[in-house]
Simulated scan of single mutants.
Amino acid sequence: MITLTTDFGLKGPYVGEMKGAILAINPEVEVIDITHSITRHSIIEGSFVMEQAVKYFPADTIHVGVIDPGVGTRRRAIIIEGHQFLVVPDNGIATLPLKWIDAKSAYEIDLQKMEAIIGRKISSTFHGRDVFGPAGALLSLGYEPSRFGKEIDLEKVIKLELEPKKEEDSWILSVIYIDDFGNVILNLENYEKPKYVEVLGRRIPYIETYGKVNIGEFLALPGSHDYLEIAINQGSAADVLGLKVGDEVEVKLIYEEG
């Protein structure tokens, strides 16, 4: 089973070409689209979305993620092996899904070896079709990752700076995702649930679900992904707060009334 997460969009032929390259190698493999609507070049957003997919797929699933603004440069194309596989550019997109796969090894894909295996030249601008998709397909046939290139130090795989930062009585958090409803997901999990969340001058009640406040009112909640989320019932918190993915924001968790 192969999942696909990209920023390709649906207008052009790119998703179809990548699927064709996969199915030409393994016509029997199941290919599942997670999304092709990641915001262009947003590695943080892609990492969050891949994390959510990895959490719910079975062992041996191959997750291909292609948000790759550095395509054709010296950035590495890699395979990370655990109880599931990540096939991604080495640009930080692996940061969040890595938490869930019990990774044991990583390999750099050698483009010359890949050309020899697939029997055609690799484009300098479309590694989704020519590198990552085919590598996923070959893994689904039982190829060992070492056939694609040398093993690399797993600890040296590039990670995004997504650890929440504690500063006295507040947190400095990053916006890691904004969904189609305008809900703002922040990089804080495993926290003690507060009574209020203070962000950008607003004291927002912490409540379990959207419908427990009036339409148009703010709330903070754990969300379905267990990260701290800021939302407006039937409105866009991102628009009102002026936030976008990658922004940092100071947040206070308030545990007392008053």
Rank of each mutant, 00 (worst) to 15 (best):
1 M>V: 04
6 T>P: 01
11 K>V: 06
12 G>W: 09
15 V>L: 15
18 M>N: 12
20 G>T: 10
20 G>F: 11
21 A>E: 14
23 L>V: 03
26 N>L: 06
26 N>H: 13
28 E>W: 11
28 E>Y: 12
29 V>A: 12
33 D>F: 00
37 S>A: 01
40 R>A: 09
41 H>W: 15
43 I>C: 07
43 I>T: 06
48 F>M: 02
48 F>T: 11
49 V>R: 07
51 E>C: 07
52 Q>W: 04
54 V>N: 00
56 Y>L: 13
57 F>D: 03
58 P>F: 12
58 P>T: 14
61 T>Y: 05
62 I>D: 14
63 H>D: 06
63 H>K: 14
64 V>I: 06
67 I>S: 07
68 D>Y: 13
69 P>T: 11
69 P>L: 15
71 V>S: 04
72 G>V: 08
74 R>F: 08
75 R>G: 09
77 A>T: 10
78 I>S: 06
78 I>W: 01
79 I>N: 00
84 Q>Y: 00
89 P>A: 02
90 D>K: 09
95 T>Y: 10
99 K>D: 15
101 I>A: 12
101 I>G: 11
103 A>Y: 07
104 K>L: 10
107 Y>W: 14
109 I>A: 12
112 Q>V: 10
112 Q>F: 09
113 K>M: 09
119 G>S: 04
123 S>W: 03
123 S>V: 03
125 T>V: 13
128 G>R: 13
130 D>N: 11
130 D>C: 11
132 F>P: 04
133 G>K: 11
134 P>D: 08
135 A>K: 07
135 A>S: 12
136 G>D: 06
136 G>A: 11
138 L>V: 01
140 S>D: 15
140 S>H: 11
143 Y>K: 13
143 Y>L: 03
148 F>N: 02
149 G>N: 05
155 E>K: 15
157 V>T: 04
160 L>F: 08
170 S>D: 12
172 I>E: 15
176 I>H: 11
177 Y>L: 07
180 D>W: 00
184 V>T: 14
185 I>K: 05
188 L>K: 09
190 N>D: 15
190 N>P: 04
191 Y>H: 00
191 Y>Q: 00
195 K>E: 08
195 K>A: 06
197 V>A: 11
199 V>M: 15
200 L>F: 07
205 P>A: 15
206 Y>G: 09
210 Y>K: 03
210 Y>L: 14
211 G>V: 11
215 I>W: 04
218 F>H: 15
219 L>H: 05
219 L>N: 03
220 A>R: 10
222 P>D: 12
224 S>W: 01
225 H>K: 12
225 H>S: 08
225 H>F: 07
228 L>H: 10
233 N>Q: 08
234 Q>N: 09
241 L>P: 08
242 G>E: 09
245 V>L: 07
251 V>W: 03
251 V>F: 03
252 K>T: 07
254 I>Q: 12
257 E>M: 07
